[in-house]
Measured scan of single mutants.
Amino acid sequence: VTLFVASYDYEARTEDDLSFHKGEKFQILNSSEGDWWEARSLTTGETGYIPSNYVAPV
């Protein structure tokens, strides 16, 4: 399981994006799509795309 933590807050801009807060942890589901990764929030359980430059490895 690949875990990352949010370095910043992010507000979703499309329905496919995932909003999150600094400190929130994610399981990365797919990182092969470039700068936007499909992730599941371990806080909310929601799945969506997050900007990879807003998160760091745990």
Rank of each mutant, 00 (worst) to 15 (best):
E24T: 07
G45T: 02
F4Y: 15
D9A: 07
W36T: 06
D9T: 07
V55T: 04
E15L: 10
Y10A: 00
L29K: 04
L42P: 04
F20N: 01
V5C: 08
K25P: 05
A12F: 02
L29I: 11
D17L: 10
H21Q: 13
L42S: 04
W37P: 00
F4R: 01
L42I: 09
S32T: 12
E24Q: 06
N53G: 11
W37C: 04
E38C: 15
H21I: 12
S19I: 02
S31M: 15
Q27P: 00
T47A: 07
T43H: 10
N30F: 07
D16H: 15
Y49E: 02
G45W: 06
T2A: 10
A12H: 05
I50H: 00
R40E: 07
V55Q: 03
D16Q: 14
E38N: 07
A12R: 08
I50Y: 00
V1K: 10
L29P: 04
V1N: 12
D16V: 13
G45E: 05
S31C: 15
H21Y: 11
E24H: 06
G45D: 05
L42K: 04
L29A: 04
E24M: 05
E15T: 12
L3D: 05
D16G: 15
N30S: 10
T43S: 12
S32I: 10
T43N: 08
H21T: 13
W36E: 04
V58T: 08
E38T: 10
Y49R: 14
A6Q: 00
I50Q: 00
T47P: 01
E38Y: 15
E38P: 04
T47I: 14
S7R: 15
F26G: 00
F26S: 00
D35R: 07
A56E: 14
V5K: 05
A12N: 05
L29E: 05
G34N: 12
S32G: 10
I50R: 00
T44K: 03
L29G: 02
E46M: 14
N30K: 08
L18K: 01
S19L: 01
G34F: 09
D17P: 00
E38M: 15
G45I: 01
E38F: 15
S19Y: 03
P57I: 08
Y8R: 13
S52H: 07
L18Q: 02
E38A: 06
R40I: 14
R13Q: 14
G45A: 04
Y49V: 07
T47F: 06
I50K: 00
W36F: 10
L18I: 10
D16Y: 15
W37M: 05
E38Q: 11
L18F: 08
V5E: 10
P57F: 07
D17R: 15
D35S: 09
H21R: 14
G48E: 01
F4S: 02
E15I: 10
E33I: 11
N53C: 15
W36N: 05
Y10D: 00
V55M: 10
A6V: 02
S41P: 04
G48T: 02
Y10S: 01
E33M: 14
T44A: 02
T14M: 11
Y10M: 02
G34I: 11
A12S: 10
W37R: 00
L3V: 13
T43L: 13
E38I: 15
R40C: 10
E24P: 00
K25V: 15
V55P: 03
E33L: 14
K25Q: 12
V5T: 07
S19H: 06
N30G: 09
I28F: 03
A39C: 05
G48Y: 04
A6N: 00
S41G: 03
S31G: 09
D17E: 15
A39R: 00
Y54G: 07
Y54A: 14
K22F: 05
F20C: 01
T47W: 08
G34W: 09
W37D: 02
S41H: 07
E11K: 11
N53P: 06
I28V: 09
A56P: 04
G23E: 03
F20M: 09
L3M: 10
S41A: 06
P57N: 05
E46Y: 09
S7M: 15
T2C: 14
T44W: 03
H21W: 08
D17G: 15
Q27K: 07
L42Q: 07
Y8C: 15
E33K: 14
E15A: 13
Q27C: 13
N53V: 09
R13C: 13
G48L: 03
P51Y: 08
W37L: 08
T47C: 11
W36H: 06
T44S: 10
E15N: 12
Y49T: 07
A56R: 14
D35Q: 09
F26I: 05
A12L: 02
E46Q: 14
S19P: 05
R40A: 06
T2G: 12
D17M: 14
W36A: 05
V5W: 05
S31E: 08
S52E: 03
A6I: 02
S41T: 03
V5P: 00
L3G: 03
K22D: 02
P57E: 09
D17Y: 14
